[in-house]
Design a protein around this nucleic acid. Structure first.
Lengths: 191, 191
DNA sequence: AACCTATGAATAAAAGTTCATTTTTTATGT
DNA sequence: ACATAAAAAATGAACTTTTATTCATAGGTT
């Protein structure tokens, strides 16, 4: 069995899609272009995805899952909250800065008519671990008494904008900058 | 002479475009659909805008200018920083919550291959007043010593996500919630 | 040989743009 | 005021371009 099996091709299409969208936004997602970028025939894309909508939904779910997994990497259940918070936010920032195409793809398609309600529902589940982390912190009176969901959005929204700014302006995320970002995020929610 | 003058029709097309994009994202911006929504003929749109790209760029500039004007509404040059900050952020939040179609439109098209570099340059100018506000605050040692541009993105990114969450979940922005949001924003930048 | 996978030119559908025609407005002369 | 003509604005069906999707054919694997 060669190493070039079906899973690889699906992944190649995913990667190509992300590259296309990073390059020219949602307008860059054209089936023929994606196929060429993935070095497969146009028809091949349709062997792995029913249509464009399906490709988008599958990729959204895939990328969102990746981000959430990365975010909770090395976060132990018995970490003190501040440690866990710091780890997860650094994970998030580093992941997004390192894979801007994934962040951009989500931004472009998460709020679009392409998104199936079922995909949205599945994606919601992915945020549960982080939300739980915030819940215990609030129970311990470590953070402000504000709707956790809203708080999470605030944190990620702030991070996203910062990351995009760094990418667009070619500014690297240094150790110092990361500390500054974390400081802003932490002070926004700490009690 | 009727009240229906050329300026009105341009505005009608702007409004229709925003409604279309709010309804179905970037995919909802189709010239024929926009025209129908604006109650004009397809060709009429091309009397006011060279093409789709132009429409998008003109509207982006228009809406961004509106937002920045609204943001600085009632902010006096001799307001103490905290007062000015609070006013501007409340203005921003209320404006965006009240006109989500404008916020959504910017989110969808600001980072897209449609955006002309000249439009981007003009839009950058619009942020100068807020940035200056942040500069004096930093000079007075009232806020953290962090790149102003980055700080502004953080504030607006956080606000945007919160506003979208409220809109999507049908949650109204009460006096209390506004205080909570402001508290998060302020603590994130205060020294 | 049967089966799975891949191809890419051909097809169909969708969307942007144009323009000959019509309607409305403005200007002019009686 | 009214009629009339020139100009401007608006129309929407027709045209063109773009893009998603299909499918008859070819290549490879068991």
């Amino acid at each position: 069995m060669t190493r070039t099996k079906s899973g690889d091709k699906k992944q190649a299409i995913f990667d190509a899609t992300l590259r296309c969208v990073l390059r020219t936004g949602f307008g860059g997602l054209k089936m023929a272009v994606v196929a060429k970028e993935a070095r497969v025939a146009t028809g091949t894309v349709y062997l792995y995805f029913r249509n464009k909508e399906d490709l988008i939904n599958a990729l959204l779910l895939h990328v969102k899952a990746e981000i959430h997994t990365a975010m909770m990497q090395d976060v132990e259940t018995d970490d003190p909250f501040f440690t866990a918070f710091k780890k997860s936010m650094i994970n998030y920032i580093d992941f997004c800065y390192g894979s801007p195409e994934k962040m951009i793809f989500i931004e472009q398609f998460y709020r679009s008519s392409y998104l199936y309600p079922e995909t949205a529902a599945e994606i919601e589940q992915l945020a549960l671990p982080v939300l739980n982390m915030l819940r215990s912190a609030r129970n311990e009176m470590l953070i402000k008494d504000i709707d956790r969901e809203l708080m999470l959005r605030q944190l990620l929204g702030a991070s996203n904008e910062i990351i995009k700014y760094c990418i667009d302006s070619g500014r690297p995320i240094t150790k110092l900058l990361r500390e500054q970002i974390l400081d802003m995020l932490w002070s926004s929610i700490r009690r």
